[in-house]
Every structure is written in structure tokens, then in C-alpha cells.
Amino acid sequence: MKRLPVMVRNGLALIGLLMSLGAGAQAKDVVAVVSIESPVTTLSRNQTVDIFLGRSKRFPDGSQAVPIDQAEGSVARDVFYANFAGMTAAQVKTHWSKIIFTGRGLPPRALPSGKEVIRLVADNPNAIGYVEPDVVDDTVRVLVVR
């Protein structure tokens, strides 16, 4: 009885995957952003990735870092992890499953769009997000990633 819903769901997931492959064909870029009030101006690629993968909870200056993801399956998210970490969506999922199911933490909060990431990051000096360059406004600062 358990089997059918799982197969149906996996079937739907497969269709979703094929659709996202189509969407991902138009290779985009994303930029890392912090609040305009944050003192952070630059991060290395590894420092950025470590914050998003839960390996580091702080910015290099010692202040708390709160990463904000975009929704699973979104182009921005897939582009971010591919460009910054060289990881596929499945590898990111595996990474977090290891941490979740050994009781060592939870993944960052994920928001459904770049605009919502901007809104949350703008109001929180500890937050860090990534967005498509075309949604950046003057409430956030684009980090120089070395």
C-alpha cells in the first residue's frame, strides 16, 4: 500500500526534474548578498560555501552568519551550489541528510524567490543570501567573492 504513493510521487518528481533541466538550460548566474548594514564586504568562495553548508556559523569577523537558501528545485539554488561549491542538487541533499539524520542540525531556511531573500536579508545584518543579479536593489550589498 505504501508503494503506490511513493511511485506516484517519484513519477511527479521525475517530471519536475525534466522540466527543471529544461529551465536550467539558460545558464544564469547568482550573486551573494548581505544587508547594506552588514560590515561584511567580501568572502572567499570557501567561506561562503561553509556558511551555507552549515560548516561555519560565523563570518570571518566573528559575527553570527544566518544563511538564507532559495527553494529546492529553483534555478538560482542549483546555479549557486554548482558555481560556488561544484555540487549537484542531489549532493547538497545528501550533505544535509547526513547532518539531519545524525541529529546534528537542520538546513538553512529556504525562501521561494530572490525578491523574498532580498527582503529578509535587508532587514537582518546577520543574514546572507544569494539572488539573481537582476533583483538586487540598494537595500543589500553584493559581496565580492574571491
Binding site: N10, A13, L14, G16, L17, E72, G73, T88, A89, A90, K93
Partner: peptide
């Protein structure tokens, strides 16, 4: 085969 983002 990772046929979906949460299933293999």
C-alpha cells in the same frame, strides 16, 4: 541513479 532530487 538520482532520478529525483530526493530519491535514488
Amino acid at each position: 541513479w538520482d532520478f529525483a532530487s530526493n530519491a535514488a
